[in-house]
C-alpha cells in the first residue's frame, strides 16, 4: 500500500479508495443461526469487496463449518447464510474453505470424503471445499489482515 502520501488529496484524490487493495483473510468460527459471527463476517466481506479490497479466502472453523451444508432450510423470510456465502464466493472468486477436522466431527462431508469414509451421503454446498488447517496458516501468511469472527 501507499507508494506516496495517500493522505494528501493532491496526490490521491479519491479518499474512498484510500488503503485500497488490502487482502483480507476471514475466519468464521461460530455456527450459523446461533451466533451472529457468520452474519458479521458476511457483512464485512461484502463491504470490503464493495470498497475495492480483496477477500481471497474465508476459513470456516469450529461450528462455523456448519455454514457450508447445502441441506439447511431456513424459513423463507430469513436470510439463507449458506446461499449468501455461495453467491458472494462465486461472484468474487472467494475460496470458501471448511476445516476438515472440524467438519468430520460435525458430519460435513464432500463426495470424495463420504465415499472414502463409507458414508451414504454428502452435504457440501456449492462453492465450498473441505481442506486442512494449513489453509488457515497459509491465509495468515498470504493476506494483509486476518479478521476473526467467532465466540
Amino acid at each position: 500500500m501507499g507508494w506516496l502520501a495517500q493522505d494528501d488529496e493532491r496526490f490521491f484524490p479519491y479518499p474512498f479508495l484510500r488503503g485500497s487493495n488490502v487482502k483480507f483473510g476471514i475466519v468464521v468460527s461460530e455456527g450459523p443461526y446461533t451466533h451472529q459471527a457468520s452474519d458479521t463476517a458476511y457483512n464485512f466481506a461484502k463491504s470490503a469487496l464493495e470498497a475495492g479490497h480483496e477477500v481471497p479466502r474465508v476459513f470456516f472453523y469450529h461450528d462455523g463449518v456448519n455454514v457450508g451444508t447445502r441441506l439447511s432450510i431456513p424459513p423463507q423470510d430469513e436470510r439463507n447464510i449458506q446461499q449468501q456465502w455461495s453467491a458472494l464466493g462465486s461472484e468474487h472468486g472467494i475460496d470458501l474453505v471448511i476445516c476438515i477436522a472440524a467438519a468430520q466431527r460435525r458430519g460435513l462431508l464432500d463426495e470424495k470424503e463420504a465415499s472414502r469414509q463409507g458414508k451414504d451421503a454428502n452435504n457440501i454446498a456449492e462453492g465450498f471445499r473441505i481442506s486442512g488447517l494449513g489453509q488457515l496458516i497459509e491465509m495468515g501468511i498470504q493476506t494483509d489482515r486476518l479478521m476473526t469472527f467467532g465466540d
Binding site: R18, G19, S20, V22, F24, S29, N43, F44, K46, S47, A48, E50, A51, H53, R145, L146, M147, T148, F149, G150, D151
Partner: peptide, 18 residues
C-alpha cells in the same frame, strides 16, 4: 460496515477479543 472495513485496512493488524 464500510467504516469497519476502513478501520481494518488502515490499521496494521487486527485482534479479535472473543
Amino acid at each position: 460496515y464500510a467504516g469497519f472495513v476502513e478501520l481494518a485496512a488502515s490499521n496494521d493488524r487486527t485482534q479479535a477479543w472473543l
